[in-house]
Design a protein around this nucleic acid. Structure first.
Length: 487
RNA sequence: GCUCCCAUCGUCUAGCCCGGUCUAGGACAUCGCCUUUUCACGGCGGUAACAGGGGUUCGAAUCCCCUUGGGAGUACCA
């Protein structure tokens, strides 16, 4: 039997981090088993669903590189349509069959009547199970007549009074006691089906082989088990993955901050890093590595390595993972990403060779692509010199003014826009031999003179990237400050 | 309330199914040191966990029970 898995979001908002994670697990499983990954839109809640969100969610999935093989935009005629709102006739057909067989019944109770029943059950300490008159098969004739007369009842499924055991790939055997749920609505009075019902119909008809979803559906599954049984349908394999929680150990939601994928996308997170981190939240790599790409997992992803408990979403580690992916990226890809960023205009104005060298140097200091132009501004183009105590101390050494004077003179001889590494080396040699300065005063002195900073990257890499005009400005500023101080 | 799920460093986790190799391993964070000048890179090292209690057993992080704690579900939401 071929593997067919699905991600079935509701278009009621942006793609959530948690949703992206389950989508990813499904995608990886399909890839690992050579199966098909299907995107199905669960838009039966007309109040909250919005077609715009469907598009946005698909965009986010695409950005993450989680591409589906079938979906509303890639229909396979055998299984289409992929939006539940377009499958009403199908749900109706099966509901009619269930009513025919007395496995479900029409329910004309009003909301108020239901409330009363529920309140009474609660008062008596019972579980609120449906006990309306329509449950009684004796009233079926009356029900049919009222339907014929044009009334619009809900359709309620007759829940068998027996226990069910689910064989879950991550939770193991889960036994639901008899009477855990009462008769439940499968089709609303407005004609739209309810999640637990259409989910089963669709999974059955779309020949879904494995249902990989969040643990929040674990209790619902008993209802679905009942429907599968009533339909005499083959059960898929189930894998209920534990949930994502925030720092307060509550289910991850908007109030925990950035939980929409598009926010990370806007902040220049790398999609591969996002996928990498999300995979790790509840699943472990067999060889305990924690940096990998999606395709690295195609041969090893399995349902066997899920942890049973909820995982806390930790931005710190995500950032680190992002940095690791950034450091592995090819310079040209980074440069390409940067070329589209408005905040990188200064960087983008430089020539290709410069950019390449700068990226090699600066990515070591960055966690995000967007950190690179920031670091460039700070470490390469910065004209402002902050007179910190550490810097003042270096300027106070008797050797430093000599270095500044000497370098000032040398810089004035430079006519090219950039200093070469060879020139820098010759200055260092001069300072060492002719000025007889060595060790810390030599290196930190030169650094301070040329960069106005006490720390930073290797000068031999940094200085050839720095425009001569900027170095000259720094030198003038430093000698002026020094003179003022002396005077 | 009821039902279901879960429980290893602050966090993500390995180990648990098939008890001994676990004085419990890795990663993030944190702290310290090193890296022929510095450093946010890198390297080395430190602090830090089997929720509690009972069993079973020669032996339990691993199996069983209870307690506690956390999460989820209990809709004509998904």
């Amino acid at each position: 039997m071929s593997v067919r898995v699905r991600f079935a979001p509701s278009p009621t908002g942006y793609l959530h981090i948690g949703g992206a994670r389950t989508a990813l697990y499904n995608y990886l499983y399909a890839k690992a088993l050579g199966g098909t990954f299907i995107l199905r839109i669960e838009d039966t809640d007309i109040e909250r669903s919005n077609a715009e969100y469907e598009k946005l969610q698909i965009d986010d999935l695409k950005w993450l590189g989680i591409t589906h093989d079938e979906g509303p935009d890639k229909p396979n005629p055998k299984y289409a349509p992929y939006r539940q709102s377009e499958r009403s006739a199908i749900y109706q057909k099966y509901a009619d069959q269930l009513i025919e067989k007395d496995l479900a019944y029409y329910d004309f109770c009003t909301e108020e009547e239901l409330e009363v029943m529920k309140a009474r059950a609660e008062a008596e300490g019972r579980d609120p199970v449906y006990e309306g008159k329509w449950k009684d098969p004796a009233n079926k004739v009356e029900a049919l007549e009222r339907v014929k007369a044009g009334e619009k009842p809900a359709i309620r499924f007759r829940a068998p009074k027996k226990s069910y055991t689910l064989k879950d790939k991550v939770k193991g055997d889960v036994t639901y006691p008899a009477n855990m749920v009462g008769d439940f609505v499968i089709v609303r009075s407005n004609g739209l089906p309810v999640y637990n019902y259409c989910c089963v119909i669709d999974d059955m008809l779309m020949e879904i082989s494995h249902v990989i979803r969040g643990e929040d559906h674990l209790n619902n599954t008993v209802r679905q088990l009942m429907i599968y049984e009533a339909l005499n349908a083959k059960l898929p394999e189930f894998a209920h993955v534990s949930l994502l929680i925030g720092s307060d150990r509550q289910k991850l939601s908007k109030r925990h901050g950035a939980t929409s994928v598009n926010l990370y996308r806007n902040e220049n997170y790398l999609p591969e890093a996002m996928c990498n981190y999300l995979t790790l939240l509840g699943w472990s790599h067999p060889s305990e590595t924690d940096i990998f790409s999606k395709s690295d997992l195609f041969s090893i992803f399995s349902l066997e390595r899920f942890s049973g408990h909820a995982a806390m979403y930790d931005l710190e580690k995500l950032k680190w993972v992002n940095g690791q992916h950034l450091k592995k990226m090819e310079n040209e890809d980074i440069i390409k990403m940067l070329s589209g960023m408005p905040e990188a205009t200064g960087f983008n104005q430089q020539d290709p060779a410069w950019k390449n060298t700068a990226v090699t140097l600066l990515k070591q200091y960055a966690d995000f692509v967007s950190d690179i132009p920031k670091k460039a501004e700070e470490m390469i183009f910065g004209e402002h010199i902050e007179m910190k105590n550490e810097l003042m101390e270096i300027l106070g050494w008797e050797t430093t003014p000599k270095i500044i004077d000497y370098l000032h003179g040398e810089m004035n001889k430079i006519t090219t826009p950039f200093v070469t590494e060879a020139e820098l080396t010759s200055w260092m040699d001069f300072a060492k031999k002719d000025l007889a300065i060595k060790g810390k005063p030599l290196f930190q002195g030169i650094r301070a003179a040329l960069t106005g900073q006490e720390h930073g990257p290797d000068l031999k890499l940094l200085i050839p990237l720095t425009p001569v005009s900027i170095i000259k400005k720094r030198l003038s500023l430093l000698s002026k400050t020094k003179q003022e101080k002396d005077g």
